[in-house]
Design a binder for these strands. Structure first.
Lengths: 215, 215, 215, 215
DNA sequence: GATGAATGAGATTTCATTCAT
DNA sequence: AATGAATGAAATCTCATTCAT
């Protein structure tokens, strides 16, 4: 997870360049498919350096992945804090919207996550996934708990199942956005902003009726 | 999609052995990660034979994948036909249950599908996915249309968005089952049957309230 | 050189089809480059048959090459016999013209010869070449002897060197024609007929002045 | 045409050893017939190294071939410059002699050229050949022009056809020498020096009478 | 600390040849 | 006589990793 000191001694811009190049390669080709050759050629640095910084391919991957996930968590934390006083479905809506924006700003990071999700040869994949799921579950669960306390949910609702359903819907929505975005070559996205908002509203509506109490 | 004559001329048991070995390898390691070397060593046949049967790696993959998808479609068709007279949410419940059973019987096939979903270097991946999505959409859409005609749905509901939401929830539920099942080493599943039924009931409940009309 | 009885028992059209397919493959890819796989696929017959007919790849090649060379010899014999009474340079001119026509009718055979000339791994290559050279030398030498007896040549001329020079010029001219013809995709040749005649006339002129006596 | 930096960074002796091994293999077996396996085994280096130096087989071939052709051109340039004041036929004689010497010093390079000439699957073969032909044509044409200006040629002679004829004779003579030399196992050549001179004299004589003006 | 040449295992693919049917 | 499935050696090429400079 942690790089050797040799990497931390690098100037910050250089660290960033290396991280970005690695993200790009891993997110496009997965762990086994990624080529350190390609990364160093792209960067114009010596192959040996990567091994000095990170020990081996796995070390590079874990570092890069970890960094990416921290960024996602930061994003979610911000949304949660900034919507503290709002109603549940408004918060869910803004979470989804934030996800779409994150996707647009860091299109590679979501695919990096997808690679981990479905590439079985990735080192520590199980640990990584468990940690992700639990983070995501905690995030939604905390929103739901707050909402329940405020009486925004139907009574007797099972928070675990509900959290699962919401997670499924939202994750799948982002998957669809990501695939659509990547398949379009990372382009012509602007016109889809409105479209995305429309879908989000519709989805949140269904969620509201499904789990919300009637007011 | 179709293998060369030379494969179809083999005895059926031999065809089956080869197909199974290929499914196992592809579903575990994805398309690029899979090794024809490993497959033939596993089978105890000569390397050249695979290429005589399928031309190249891609030919083998497409054949195997196609076969797998036909099996899934058969399964779904059967469920749809056998539940023709039932109410929508009962049909959805049985579809999910059938999915869980399919998973248990053919644990490798679902992961094969997941590999295609998220491995960008797979040949014809886009075509494959488009065809799958449209099949899945049509399946749910037809169930929804029938239900709407029968007055089982809230009025003014958007069938496209609804179909998307249902697809997301159900697909994600199966993903979760698959990952849980595989992570457990394909074992200790029996006790989970009850658990699965419980979850399915809960999920269908949420769906019912979200989109059903109140009776 | 000789095929097994099994080949000679085939119907003549079938023999011809096989021979032609083999010529095509060998003339295009050389001996080592040629693929028996490709030949049988092209023909639609079983791979085993080729080995039953000719024993191995080398057997097929030698048979095919031998046949081709017999055709060339027939062609040359005909020209020699039909021009018996003409003057040397007229005979050379007609020989060249005959060569050009042969090329147009059997474009693959000349390249087959070129492959043998420059592919070192061909079986019996040395024997084959020695036999070819000696045939060609005898052919020209006999024309030159006749011409010398008739007083058409400068006195004291060395017939061996002269034969060599003529052979070089004529062979190279045909090489140039063949390459030009093949590079043009075996097409648009008609308009070049006149051009070829022009070149032949010029070349024969130079030869005449170089070795002929002045009349 | 140019090797990657990684090859140029090698020590010169090592570069030379590799180049020579490659020339040997390609000149003996042609482009497709040559085996990188054989080259590296011969050299005692790792297979991967060749690919690090030249990218792929084609890169190695083009580099090696280009180098060889530069050597030939150097040789020809030297002859032309050193015989500037001499009469045409003396220059042709010396060109042929230089060719024979080049052959003896670099016996593999001429066969390398022959392989290119007649192996249809060589990459860029057409471009390579066109460039060679035009160089050879220019060389002879320039000699002929000079000679014409000096009044050494018959009047009204067609320089293009003449250049073709000379090229044919000389090239074929060298082919014959090369084949004879190689067939003899690169040995027992010394005694042939005199023989070669004799043939050259005879051939040049025929050329002189064929195209020279009578003095 | 940075470099990049060297390595060799392993990947896909082709092919002549054999042999049971 | 004809077939074509089976074979395995050998081809080109990629890649993570090591280590001397």
């Amino acid at each position: 997870m942690t790089p050797l000191k040799t990497f931390q001694n690098l100037s910050e811009p250089k660290q960033k360049r290396i991280t970005q190049a690695a993200v790009e390669e891993f997110s496009e080709k997965g762990f086994t498919g990624a080529s350190i050759n390609a990364i160093v050629k792209n960067l114009g640095i010596a192959k040996g350096s990567i091994f000095q910084y990170f020990g081996d391919k796995q070390g590079l991957f874990l570092f890069v992945f970890n960094q990416a996930m921290e960024m996602v968590k930061d994003y979610l934390r911000t949304v949660r804090d900034q919507t503290e006083d709002e109603e549940l479905f408004s918060r869910l809506e803004k979470t989804l919207l934030a996800g779409v924006h994150f996707l647009r700003e860091h299109p590679r990071l979501y695919t990096l996550y997808l690679k981990v999700l479905f590439e079985s040869q990735i080192p520590f994949r199980n640990k990584i996934l468990a940690s992700l799921r639990s983070y995501s579950h905690e995030y939604l669960y905390s929103l739901l708990e707050t909402a329940k306390d405020r009486g925004e949910l139907r009574e007797n609702i099972d928070l675990d199942k509900t959290s699962f359903v919401l997670d499924a819907i939202m994750d799948r929505f982002l998957q669809a956005q990501a695939i659509q975005y990547l398949d379009a070559g990372l382009g012509l996205y602007k016109t889809d902003e409105e479209n995305a908002r429309d879908w989000i509203a519709g989805i949140v509506d269904i969620m509201r009726i499904g789990i919300g109490c009637e007011k």
